[in-house]
């Protein structure tokens, strides 16, 4: 295992994440459970948007098989918005994302995308609706060339959209140089670009990113966030789960703090960052 990958496994928390651990599931839950919102907190607890949202989760219960992870989760993403989900390990952050993409067991509640319910659809159908997903680990096909990886992202189209591949090469120029190289031979940062490029092949309205900085060398993390900003600036809404919570909240429009599979706080990123409770409990002071 390379040093880059070391931070990517759950057992092996990165430095950024270590600070979260004291409030990890089951460690010191008593205070939080009794007083979900402490009196002195300024962070909001209204988890829904008043206006239009392209993604709308309401009272969502979901998990894996019989194991329920999420309960009554509300979450909205407005058109072209950048939303991030933070919270301790085991809070169900990734589960929210996987549930939107149809990869978990839907138990109750609704997931609406652009006004249509999508819970219960298979990933293949959800892609057609206009959602792209970049999983956390192993998110490229190592034996396929960079170009073939991108082509697979547009599998549901009848022909390879050459202009779209060119747009992605313009966005990530290094991928044009590496076009014929096997994705397995690329560095962690370049693999992450291939994974994002593949998810962008169908020009989705919403991009789901599961811990995009996981496994990246520290000096590449800022670069990766810049790329996500640019993707968002060009009109794609982003819903991101990130272990690097401070940086994620600094970049996003709004943030959701999830604890034990339930909503805790929802507010603009800088408000959450400035809130003493959130800082203390979830961001390491």
């Amino acid at each position: 295992m390379s040093a880059e990958e070391a931070g990517s496994t759950d057992e092996h928390a990165g430095d950024e994440r270590a600070a979260d651990e004291p409030v990890g599931a089951g460690d010191t839950p008593s205070d939080d459970d009794e007083a979900p919102v402490s009196a002195e907190s300024d962070a909001g607890t209204d988890h829904t948007l008043d206006g239009d949202a392209i993604l709308r989760l309401r009272d969502l219960d979901a998990g894996y098989g019989d194991l329920q992870i999420l309960s009554d989760v509300d979450l909205d993403v407005a058109d072209e918005e950048f939303v991030t989900i933070v919270g301790p390990n085991g809070a169900g952050k990734s589960t929210v994302m996987k549930t939107v993409f149809g990869l978990t067991t839907h138990m109750d509640g609704t997931v609406e995308f652009e006004g249509e319910p999508i819970h219960g659809l298979a990933p293949e159908q959800i892609i057609r609706e206009g959602i792209g997903f970049v999983p956390q680990n192993d998110n490229v096909f190592p034996g396929l060339s960079v170009r073939e990886n991108l082509e697979m992202g547009a599998y549901i189209l009848d022909s390879v959209p050459e202009d779209r591949i060119e747009e992605i090469y313009d966005r990530f120029p290094i991928l044009r140089e590496r076009s014929d190289q096997k994705a397995g031979t690329l560095s962690g940062g370049q693999r992450q670009m291939v994974a994002m490029g593949r998810a962008l092949m169908l020009d989705p309205d919403l991009l789901l990113l599961d811990e995009p900085s996981a496994g990246l060398a520290p000096d590449l993390v800022a670069d990766m966030f810049d790329r996500i900003d640019r993707i968002n600036d060009s009109g794609t809404a982003v819903l991101m789960v990130e272990q690097n919570a401070k940086e994620a909240l600094r970049r996003c429009d709004r943030g959701y703090v999830l604890v034990n599979g339930e909503n805790r706080y929802t507010d603009r990123g800088e408000v959450l960052l400035g809130d003493e409770d959130v800082r203390k409990d979830f961001l390491g002071g």
């Binding site: 990933p123 999983p135 192993d138 697979m152």
Partner: peptide
């Protein structure tokens, strides 16, 4: 290479 990734990529 990776069945799970093929699933989320939309490969039938």
């Amino acid at each position: 290479d990776n069945k799970d990734l093929a699933l989320v990529t939309g490969i039938p």
